[in-house]
Design a protein around this nucleic acid. Structure first.
Length: 422
RNA sequence: GUGGGCGUAGCUCAGCUGGUUAGAGCUCUGGAUUGUGAUUCCAGAGGUCGUGGGUUCGAGUCCCAUCGUCCACCCCA
């Protein structure tokens, strides 16, 4: 039987990897531009961490985690998201106590779901978190980072949806009222809604089951429970976005699937990716660090799905910087092959940015030129025994940029540097 | 977890109501041009038709199962 990749876990082939490299390069540049430092984390954590952070009765923890026992009997899980690990590490290394931290993180995350467009079992996130800044300017900063990222990647067409869940006390008051209300109508709710009623009643508001929706219509609105501080915080976030010219729409149904959010929640949504339109989502989680056993520290951040971003780049035909070879050396004849071998290393010494392929595996000049053309190179360098004896190289354009000519080997680096703008 | 579409050459696909040696384009290799690509012409290579059963004189084609893949629900990044 043929061995193939695990369902929903994909290979990225060289032809597609340049888009990934571009995303990572631009993201690292943007995050650095805001003073965020990179944190690198293990892929495996204790299962307990995600149960406590994400919420025990969320779909992510209940049915989507890859959990197992290791040989020593520890309950471990492949991380289904990045925020929990960032906080665990932050607490463990004492960098969240009484201070501000700006941190970003990237890597694979795992969820056991049925794969479809923009949804995979192993996928990759970019994660940005700001700790220890309770004021709404941090929320604005986090959203602005995403906007800056779109700008530098050359992407457009996102809708920014925002909402507020309010402070912990106002959220708690609403939650109690909501549970009360839903309990009165428990019989009419669908199974899912009843299941979530106590654990995560906000999710019930998001239900698409018609009968449940009808009940939700009359449910107490979070807006009515927001205290002054909550409203002021949300107003300040909106004002900040307006000051930056970042357009948004308020979506009162936007609730987020993870339990830990307070105050601001937001999603960057596109209608160009079919059913998986959320590319980036996040919010504020002021109680989470404490809930995980750390100091009383606020947090706000977002997670971004790299696969979705890259799919969207393709849809929007965002140009991807090529890393195809620029120059291909064709060589034939014993003398010439040795001369070309030496020349190739000399050129790489002289021009570190040059992308150069030396023909290997023999072949006629004709077939070597075919390879040169096929690999995307702009120039072919041709070295036969004639050129080798003369200490020269024939420079031939493969893209209709002038006639072929013979160049002394000593002048070659300067010539290539000029032609390729290295 | 639920529902639907699709699995034929490395890739994209054709193959009529079951009927002889399963085709095309692209790619690849060689030649036309004893040292010049991309265009043209010629030739060649490349397939247990996803897998396993079943129906039939005969299955790529029909039936069942299974695996994979894609899409939607759901969930979310």
């Amino acid at each position: 039987m043929k061995i193939q990749s695990v369902r929903g876990m994909n290979d990225v082939l060289p032809a597609d990897a340049s888009a990934w490299q571009q995303v990572h390069a631009v993201a690292a540049q943007v995050f650095a531009a805001y003073g965020y430092g990179e944190l690198r984390l293990p892929v495996v954590e204790r299962t307990e961490l995600f149960k406590r952070a994400v919420g025990e009765v969320t779909d992510v923890v209940e049915k989507e985690m890859y959990s197992f026992e290791d040989r020593g009997g520890e309950r471990l899980s492949l991380r289904p998201e990045l925020t929990a690990g960032v906080i665990r590490a932050g607490i463990e290394h004492g960098i969240l106590f009484n201070q501000q931290q700006r941190i970003w993180c990237t890597g694979p995350v795992f969820r056991y779901e049925r794969p479809q467009a923009g949804r995979y079992r192993q996928f990759h996130q970019l994660d940005v978190e700001a700790f220890g800044i309770a004021t709404p300017d941090a929320d604005v900063e986090i959203i602005a980072i995403a906007a800056q990222l779109w700008k530098r990647l050359g992407m457009s067409g996102f809708q920014l949806q925002i909402n507020t869940l309010g402070t912990l006390p106002s959220r708690a008051a609403h939650r109690a009222a909501l549970i009360d209300y839903l309990l009165q109508h428990e019989a009419a709710l669908d199974e899912d809604a009843r299941h979530r009623l106590h654990s995560n009643p906000l999710r019930v508001l998001d239900s698409k089951v018609p009968a449940t929706q009808a009940i939700v219509e009359g449910a107490p609105s979070l807006l009515d429970y927001l205290d002054e501080a909550s409203i002021a915080h949300f107003d300040a976030v909106k004002a900040g976005l307006e000051a930056l010219g970042i357009a948004y729409v308020i979506n009162p149904r936007l609730v987020r699937g993870l339990d830990y959010y307070t105050h601001t929640v937001f999603e960057w949504v596109t209608d160009q990716l079919g059913a998986q339109g959320t590319v980036c989502a996040g919010g504020r989680y002021d109680g989470l660090v404490e809930q995980l056993g750390g100091p009383k520290t606020t947090g706000v951040g977002f997670g971004l799905g790299i696969e979705r971003l890259i799919l969207l780049m393709a849809v929007q035909q965002v140009p991807v910087v090529s890393n195809q070879p620029q120059v291909y050396i064709c060589r034939f004849g014993a003398e010439a092959e040795r001369a070309a071998l030496q020349l190739s290393e000399t050129l790489r010494d002289q021009l570190p940015d040059l992308r150069l392929v030396l023909n290997a595996g023999g072949g006629s000049l004709k077939s070597q030129l075919k390879r040169a053309d096929g690999c995307g190179a702009r120039l072919a360098l041709i070295i036969g025994d004639d050129e080798a004896a003369a200490g020269a190289v024939q420079v031939k354009s493969l893209r209709g940029e002038g006639e072929a000519f013979t160049c002394p080997r000593t002048e070659l680096a300067a010539e290539l540097s000029r032609r390729l703008a290295l």
